[in-house]
């Protein structure tokens, strides 16, 4: 029986402390345990290792090996104690194999609103909650999240505990629309026509 796991990704470029703080807050830990999650994996981003390690109970008894779960990125292991049990916590800065981590472990993903991270989850068919980093100016995150949410491919929210709890509950009862394939015959044909000069 696989361990029900939620994966949180903050993206490669800038850290997103509001999201990490929200998902590790006692209220969300409690909510996750209630929903049957036993493990949270957090990709917390650059220059955030120290803050992350301080905010969890580091557990030396868990396997510290790089290859546990099969990803690189020097993971930190720990747990958070809720009233109904323990939530296992694994954090790492960044991995070149994020898609593998999602594919092999995640039952649900919470992501920042970068297009790369959104595609990683949607292309793998994983249910996805997107948190918009509202401290970033002019990088289209809200626009992107709204666009995907309006066609019901994901649930979008701000990194506030209440909002995230609401999305977590929705993710357990609602279903999102499957994301269409990237393959489009008309685009392929347009490329062929241009390259080989075969139109008309």
């Amino acid at each position: 029986m696989p361990i029900k796991t939620i994966f949180v990704t903050c993206g490669a470029t800038v850290p997103f402390p509001q999201l990490v703080e929200a998902v590790l807050s006692p209220r969300i830990v409690e909510e996750l345990l209630n929903l049957g999650f036993k493990r949270i994996i957090v990709q917390f981003g650059r220059n955030y290792r120290e803050s992350f390690t301080q905010s969890i109970n580091v557990d030396q008894s868990l396997p510290p090996s790089q290859t546990y779960l099969g990803f690189n990125g020097d993971p930190v292991h720990g747990f958070s104690q809720g009233s109904s049990g323990k939530l296992e916590i694994i954090g790492f800065e960044y991995s070149t194999r994020i898609q593998d981590v999602i594919q092999e472990n995640a039952d649900l993903v919470i992501s920042h609103a970068g297009t790369g991270s959104i595609l990683d989850s949607l292309r793998l068919g994983k249910p996805l909650i997107v948190c918009v980093n509202d401290t970033l100016m002019d990088n289209h995150q809200q626009e992107i999240a709204d666009q995907f949410a309006s066609s019901n491919h994901l649930w979008a929210c701000l990194p506030r505990v209440d909002d995230v709890v609401q999305c977590l509950r929705r993710s357990q009862t609602e279903r999102t629309e499957p994301f269409p394939s990237a393959y489009n015959r008309n685009f392929e044909k347009a490329l062929e026509d241009l390259a080989y000069g075969t139109s008309n």
Binding site: G116, G197, N200
Partner: peptide
């Protein structure tokens, strides 16, 4: 654009040039 095709069909292996613009551009 595609109507400006050559009068003959080109054969042989394709030559492609891609520009990888870093970060998200490279990813896409």
């Amino acid at each position: 654009a595609s109507s400006r095709s050559n009068s003959f069909t080109k054969n042989g292996p394709l030559q492609i040039f891609v520009f990888l613009g870093s970060g998200g551009h490279t990813g896409e």
